[in-house]
Each structure stands twice: as C-alpha cells, then as structure tokens.
Amino acid sequence: MAAAVPIAIRTAFVLGSTSEVAKAICRELAGRGCQRFHLVARNGEANQQLATELQHRFGASVSTETTDLLADAALEPARRPEVGEFDLYLITAGSLGDAELARSDAAEALRITAANYAGLLPWLTAIATPERIARPGRLWVFSSVAADRGRPSNYHYGAAKAALTAFCEGLLLRCHGKPFAVRIIKAGFMATPMTVGKAPLELCASPESVARDLLRRPNRRAIEYLPWWWSPLMLLIRLFPAPLASKL
C-alpha cells in the first residue's frame, strides 16, 4: 500500500464495488485518507466482505447497498436512486455476459445491455444533477476498449460500452467549465476472474496498477486509456481492414 498522500477525496460512492478494480481503488483510496465509503453491488455477501476489510484495516466508515442493474433497467417508471453527497462517484459495474448466447437469444443481449449501459442510467442521472455539477466533485466511469470497434466475439458488450462512453462524453462536455469533473476510463484487459482464459496474460494489467494510475492525477477530466499503451494499440485496431478485424 502506498504511503498516505493528502488528496481531496475523503468520501466515495462506488457502484459495482465487488469488481476487482473497484476493490483495488477502494483500498488505495482508504490508504490515502478516504474516510467514508458507500458500496453498491449485486452480491451483498461479497460487498460486506469489502466493507469489513475497509473498516478493520483502514478504520473507514462504510455503508452498503444491494442493487440489480437488470432490474434497474426494466423498472417503469425508472426509479431515482439515492446517491448522497460524495467527493467521488466511481462506476465500475459491468458484465461480459454470454456473447455466444446473445447472438441467438435477445434476452441475453438485453441483459448485457442492462448490465453495461441501460441499468446504469438511473444512477448516472441521479448523480449528474444541475445542483451537483455546480459543486466540486468527481465522476469516474469505467468503459472498455471494446467500445472502440465492433468485434465478432463480443459485439453486444462492445455496443453497450460504446453507448456508455458516448453518454458519459456528453456529461464530460456538459461539465466543461464547471467544478464537477467527469473522467471516462477505457480499460483494457485486467488480471481478474472475468478475463481468465479470454485474454493473453501479457496484455493484462493488475487492478492495483490501474488504481495507482488513476490516483496519480485524481482531478483529471478526460477520456483515457488504462494502461496508457491501449491508446496506440486501439488506434491501430481501428485502422484494420474488415478481413483482419473479423479475426479479432
């Protein structure tokens, strides 16, 4: 754990808190002086385990909440979640889903869309109010390099992440000149259970290294690739002609 460095993130709201990258970011934040967390995830037991760790290891104040993004996307009328007041809103929720099944099963295609985009809309709408963006704060949203180009192997996931990226880019531009900073992270492969067997190990960054990279510049507002070398790599991939791209 890095030595504590004073930064202006003392409270954090985390949606998708049981993801490996969220847990790494929470630990890094707590080690740097973040004192209060609200953790939102579908798996209540795993969420409580992280809460207990942050409380006992770092002395943080932690509250938890369970939600199902698939249900959030289907509610009519859409609910407005309570998101409270925090220095940082971190959105890491998402799921690859079953790409093979989604090719023939519209229900699975909709589940992937809900988990990676539609189910996040009630939360993002509740966060990005006119009152909140007029005050200092941060919104960090994890998208994916899969948003940059359709791939035959997981185009439902990529399409959902592309929609999330476009939506959050609109928020980023809406907040231009305002105290509230929006940051969109196009993450490449990470060494997590979600990518086991799906990505070469040499292309996988650790969640801990991603957390440290983010906190080197906690006030940044941008669309960025993590690790950085995904930016030139995805530029190259976007230039691939269709016959080559079809092999991705």
Score class of each variant (00 low, 15 high):
G31F: 14
G31D: 11
G31E: 11
G31C: 07
G31A: 15
R32G: 08
R32I: 01
R32L: 00
R32K: 04
R32D: 08
G33K: 06
G33R: 03
G33Y: 09
G33L: 05
C34Q: 03
C34I: 03
C34W: 06
C34L: 04
Q35H: 02
Q35W: 00
R36P: 07
R36N: 08
F37I: 01
F37N: 08
F37A: 03
F37D: 09
F37V: 06
F37S: 08
H38C: 12
H38M: 05
H38V: 00
L39Y: 07
V40T: 03
V40W: 01
A41F: 12
A41C: 08
R42D: 03
R42L: 09
R42I: 09
G44F: 06
G44S: 13
G44C: 04
G44W: 02
E45M: 12
E45A: 14
E45R: 06
E45Q: 06
E45D: 12
E45W: 04
A46M: 01
N47Q: 06
N47D: 00
Q48Y: 07
Q48V: 10
Q48T: 09
Q48N: 13
Q48A: 14
Q49H: 13
Q49V: 15
Q49K: 12
L50Q: 01
L50T: 00
L50Y: 02
A51Q: 02
A51E: 05
A51I: 04
A51W: 13
A51V: 09
T52G: 15
T52L: 12
T52D: 15
E53G: 05
E53Y: 07
L54M: 05
L54T: 04
H56Q: 15
H56L: 14
H56R: 15
R57D: 10
R57Q: 12
R57V: 09
R57I: 09
R57Y: 10
F58Q: 00
F58S: 05
F58D: 01
F58P: 00
F58E: 04
F58M: 04
F58L: 02
G59K: 13
G59C: 13
G59F: 05
G59Y: 10
G59E: 10
G59W: 06
A60Y: 07
A60L: 13
A60E: 02
A60G: 14
S61D: 11
S61M: 14
V62W: 12
S63I: 02
T64E: 08
T64K: 10
T64I: 14
E65Y: 01
E65F: 06
E65S: 11
E65R: 11
E65L: 09
